[in-house]
Write a protein that binds this DNA or RNA. Structure first.
Ligand SMILES: [Mn+2]
Ligand SMILES: [Mn+2]
Length: 852
DNA sequence: GCTATTT
DNA sequence: AAATAGCAACGCGTC
DNA sequence: GACGCG
């Protein structure tokens, strides 16, 4: 009997006028029950988890399993006991709205019936349930046990454990949550005695008259095949995507893409550009018709296999040239339409499953099913390359069929390989006939034909003669390549109409290909469409290309706006720091650093941070506590990754000390921070910096300039690490006081905004122990996200503002980089002579370590 | 943004 | 699990 | 001693 208030907690937590979850007000089912239901709902709430619910006493007893179930009996999965849910919740799928309890997406990840193996009421009370699950994914014998010490607490911790039986599998070999991530809501409740079937398919819908075992995926839509169909194309990537469980891999076949339309008795074959090649492939046509297929579209690739069973592109071309096309094989890998259904909305897995059923009856030898390889992508690619294949094709398991190039289909190539325009050729040497090499090119963004180097190998004798003949027919007086291309003077030019497929080792920095091998002429591609192919990262092919961002770094809320004035996002700041990291690390290395963080963007409350005891900021390390024994350990950004992991923690600014960790009590620089007061015009700031420069020069001190990113400028004086902090600070104060005394209209040496109205306070206080100044290349947490940038003194005159550069326009400055400060490292000046010139006497107390 | 605490 | 609370520097100079 | 600056 259900307790009357069993669902009280459930209802209290939810507002059913807002959420679409069931209120569970329906009448409880009658006492007689044939079977108890169970459901596992995958719930993307604050964190992803799996809610296991077992029907008992008229409600669904529920546990939240953060890691989800495991078939490995050695895995004990934490299962937090949560409030009972109504049975009607079992079919709930959807989005729980923002602000509601458990906001986020919910899917029915598994469902079925459960059979208690011992008295479930007693077991539930006592904290030990043994049961069998009969679901689509979860099967076999399981146990839920309550952990000690947790009984009575509001949230009891239980453990979900797989018992040893025929369904148990080691975690190293199988992860059900990874391999079966999707919803089963469209499937029927499995029957206990139902035969093992692919869980992806419903047995309830069958297409008429197809193979006996053909079942239709639910996403199939009734539709007649269209007259034309454009193929789905794959995106070139430079490596497999991160999650291998989401992808299947097939061999990339080196031939021509061919789509087949079956329309009653008529069968037509189309190339990827929609050319009807039916007449060119009579044998293939005959073979397909023998399969007696229903109307639809087949998708695949035609190839000629060599004696080793490897596709041979040149042999394929030969077959067409000589009209001996019997040797052509057709490898089918997709089935976008079939037997009155549009299968494009189905997943590629489902379409392939259907396609495979077409091969259950013996099929003609030329027609093949393109198998997938059940191994990690690197291994598949490796063996494909060793076999001399072109590469592999990856398809996202859940992807639907779309008539365009899609990031859900990817190609991973063995060698780099692409088509080039033939722009000329050289004469053969020695005994070779025909041509020596082909001059290759590709069109750039401005549609100029760029020279890409030569290819001189990979031809057989016939290819050499044929090419020569073809090239002579299109010969030209002048070079088709863009002016200034450095090409052999004895070359023969041709009109840029022929396209060659070439494999090669790599691109040189000069934009030429190395180790090129000719693979054949392409007649299915237009010369004007040939561009330089650039592989992208598979994981970023969808949207952004994240250049040098380590994959280990998790960026949460990448699209959060940091600066509302510019719309600059967190991910943009990550990219900025990734970009300037090599330049900025020179200024950070070895120096204690302080961070300015902006958890709510720059318009929110900022805070300053000097310490961090967590170990979750990779690349930011704690320094020796002895450096500053009075406080928590200081920080150092020790690697470029540290910059990025800091940004993940909403760090915007990086401020450094004037000393390095290897000699923390002797500053290695002085900073003069020019802080203009109210009403100071830019030209005055500029001239004042110049005056500081001149005065320092008179003292014999070389100085370096940078923008502050704010209103003012920073002047840095690198010094020998000789005097202690107090001495250096007092000397810097003396310099500022001297300037303020000699040019009182311009400078003040006294801090406080009141003192500097219309004047510039030269802040020498940055020179104390523990004081910091914003680092070069740091972004400032202010509207516009300006950046502190190193400058040469010669640039000062044309400088328009201390905020001249920002995170958005820094690319204009990257080429200059740290160049303006090139001699910074070599300047190791003693300030002793400067002290003498200024008449500054170091305090005895401050210089006692000084011996000579 | 993260962690510990509470329910 | 989910919501919530607490946390993340410091010294110096000026008045 | 409080305030405020970076
Ligand atoms: Mn949940
Ligand atoms: Mn300043």
């Amino acid at each position: 009997m259900p307790k009357l208030d069993s669902l009280k907690t459930y209802r209290e937590k939810r507002d059913f006028s807002i959420t679409s979850e069931p209120a569970g007000l329906e009448k409880k089912a009658g006492a007689k029950k044939t079977a108890l239901s169970f459901v596992v709902q995958k719930h993307w709430a604050t964190r992803l988890h799996y809610d296991l619910r077992l029907e008992l006493e008229g409600t669904m007893k529920s546990w939240a399993v953060p890691k989800g179930p495991s078939f490995d009996p050695n895995d004990k999965r934490m299962a937090v006991h949560v409030e009972d849910h109504p049975i009607s919740y079992n079919t709930f799928e959807g989005e729980i709205p923002h602000g509601q309890y458990g906001a986020g997406k919910v899917i029915v990840w598994d469902k079925g019936i459960w059979i208690p193996l011992e008295d479930p009421h007693k077991g539930y009370r006592d904290g030990k349930l043994k049961f069998e699950l009969h679901g689509h994914k979860l099967k076999g014998h399981w146990t839920l046990v309550r952990m000690k010490n947790t009984q009575g607490q509001k949230q009891e911790a239980w453990l979900l454990i797989k018992e040893k039986d025929g369904y148990a599998r080691p975690a190293s070999e199988y992860s059900v949550v990874d391999e079966m991530p999707d919803s089963v809501s469209h499937l029927n409740i499995p029957q206990i005695l139902a035969s093992a079937e692919s869980p992806t398919f419903s047995a309830s819908r069958k297409a008429s008259g197809t193979g006996k075992n053909m079942v239709l995926p639910v996403s199939a839509v009734k539709a007649d095949p269209p007259r034309m169909l454009e193929p789905q194309l794959a995106t070139l990537v430079d490596g497999p995507p991160a999650d291998p469980a989401e992808w299947i891999y097939e061999i990339k076949l080196d031939g021509y893409r061919l789509l087949t339309r079956i329309d009653g008795k008529e069968i037509r074959l189309f190339t990827r550009n929609g050319n009807d090649w039916s007449h060119k492939l009579p044998d293939l046509l005959k073979a397909i018709s023998k399969m007696r297929l229903k109307p639809g579209w087949l998708d695949g690739e035609i190839v000629v296999l060599n004696e080793k069973g490897i596709p041979d592109f040149q042999a394929l071309q030969n077959a067409f040239d000589t009209e001996r096309t019997q040797s052509i094989s057709y490898f089918l890998f997709d089935l976008p339409f079939y037997d009155g259904y549009d299968l494009r909305p189905c997943s590629v897995i489902e379409r392939r499953e259907l396609l495979k059923t077409l091969f259950e009856k013996p099929a003609p030898e030329q027609i093949r099913f393109s198998e997938v390889f059940d191994a990690p992508p690197d291994a598949v690619l490796g063996s494909a390359c060793r076999l001399g294949l072109e590469g592999i094709i990856g398809k996202r398991k859940t992807s639907t069929y779309v008539s365009r190039r899609s990031p859900d289909w990817i190609k991973l190539k063995c060698a780099r390989r692409q088509e080039f325009v033939i722009g000329g050729y050289t004469d053969p040497k020695g005994s070779r006939e025909g041509i020596g090499s082909l001059l290759l090119g590709y069109y750039d963004e401005d549609h100029q034909l760029q020279y890409a180097g030569n290819v001189g190998t990979g031809f057989n004798d016939k290819a050499l003669r044929d090419l020569k003949a073809k090239l002579e027919r299109i010969s030209s007086e002048s070079s088709p390549f863009v002016r200034g291309s450095a090409i052999d003077k004895k070359a023969h030019w041709v009109k840029p109409v022929l396209v060659a497929e070439v494999s090669f080792g790599e691109w040189t920095r000069g934009g030429h290909i190395r180790h090129a091998v000719f693979r054949g002429l392409r007649t299915d591609k237009k010369a004007e469409a040939i561009v330089r192919e650039k592989p992208v990262h598979a994981d970023s092919a969808r949207a952004d290309s994240s250049a040098s961002i380590p994959p280990s770094l998790r960026i949460t809320n990448p699209d959060r706006v940091i600066d509302p004035s510019s719309g600059f996002k967190k991910i943009d700041l990550i990219r900025y720091y990734a970009l300037v990291a090599p330049l900025m690390m020179e200024h950070l290395k070895g120096r204690p650093v302080s961070l300015v963080r902006a958890p709510d963007g720059i318009s929110g409350q900022l805070f300053f941070q000097k310490h961090w005891d967590k170990e979750n900021m990779r690349g930011v390390s704690q320094l020796d506590p002895d450096l500053d024994p009075e406080h928590e350990p200081l920080l150092e950004v020790s690697t470029a990754e540290g910059l990025l992991s800091a940004v993940q923690m909403n760090v915007i600014e990086f401020h450094t000390w004037n000393a390095t960790k290897d000699k923390i009590d002797k500053p290695d620089r002085m900073v003069f921070d020019l802080d203009p007061g109210e009403g100071v015009q830019w030209p005055h700031i500029r001239e004042s910096a110049q005056l500081v420069f001149i005065f320092l020069k008179e003292l014999g001190l070389k100085s370096f300039l940078k923008t502050s990113g704010g209103k003012g400028l920073h002047v840095i004086v690198p010094i020998k690490r000789f005097y202690n902090w107090d001495t250096v600070k007092e000397f810097s104060q003396a310099i500022v006081q001297h300037l303020a005394a000699t040019i009182p209209r311009r400078f003040v040496a006294k801090s406080g905004p009141r003192n500097r109205v219309g004047k510039i306070f030269i802040d020498y206080l940055r020179n104390g122990f523990g004081a910091t100044t914003v680092s070069a290349w740091s972004v400032r947490a202010q509207p516009g996200l300006s950046v502190s940038v190193p400058l040469a003194w010669e640039e000062l005159e044309s400088l328009t503002s201390g905020m001249r550069w920002s995170a958005s326009n820094i690319h204009e400055r990257l080429d200059r980089g740290n160049e303006p400060w090139a001699d910074y490292q070599t300047v190791k000046q003693s300030i002793t002579p400067a002290m003498k010139r200024l008449g500054f006497k170091p305090n005895r107390e401050n210089t006692k370590q000084k011996t000579a």
